[in-house]
Amino acid sequence: MQFASFLGCNIPARVSQYADATGAVFDKLNIELVDFPEFNCCGYPARNMDHRTFVLSAAKNLAVAERSGLDMMVMCKCCYGSLKKAAYALDEDPDLKKDINAILAKEKLHYEGRVQVHHLLSVLYHKVGTASLKPLISKTFSGLQIAVSYGCHALRPSKITGFDDPVSPVIFDELVEITGAFSVEWARKLDCCGAPLTGVNDRLAMDMALKKITSARDAGAHYICTACPYTHLQFDWVQNRMALNSDNWEPLAPILYPQLLGLCMEIDQKTLGLDHNRLELSHITSYLMTE
């Protein structure tokens, strides 16, 4: 199996451990992830400014992947939502598609609409399958309680993203539970992490993060599991700053899903980049069962 791996902008610059951990896990799975230097911004940040700009930026990535004949695997939920939305808009509006293709022609690219866009979690759940993942797990967690954060832009609008059931999704919970960890039920599991307004309305963004973290803690979670660089930075960097500026804030550290899975595949912590997270993570290994 091969995928065109789409990292987006945040991962290479600020969350490189997400790419490293994913790469290590996919090596174990014998799935090749192909990088394309032509990939650029998914268009997500431009959506507030201009719809056409957003679609063009997304469309170039779709066209690059389409040319290679590979389906895309996206690690960022916002990139995923953006690419899905752009593909939908291009499919709906032939005039827009013509306009976009005229600009893409300057880059010797063309978008037809054949490429499939998957999120990392969808690939693991649907293409690999939990049954195939389980034999690769050599150590499991015991007594570890995890709160999974689904990510708005993957779940909704469900008609377009097609990620999972928007009201009672299961993919992420099941993927966490194959590691032996328990996926807790928590009220704000499907809510926004606040990242879209970080840098714009930080007070509101932090309120959102705070509510989610409190809800996860109340449900007994030891860690929050993320599969999106925006959510991850929100819970790692922003929460870290909130903790530094507060007297009584005990942070609830996030862990990226491939880091969690990688620990159970006995991939070493350095490769998984556990120390690349700002909030302390090393304690999580104490939940690993030694047989």
């Binding site: 959506r47 970080t198 960097w237 922003v238």
Partner: peptide, 15 residues
Amino acid sequence: PVLTPFSFARGVAIQ
């Protein structure tokens, strides 16, 4: 554009 996710890095890293 300050009111868009282009501000994210400013919010998490520069602030």
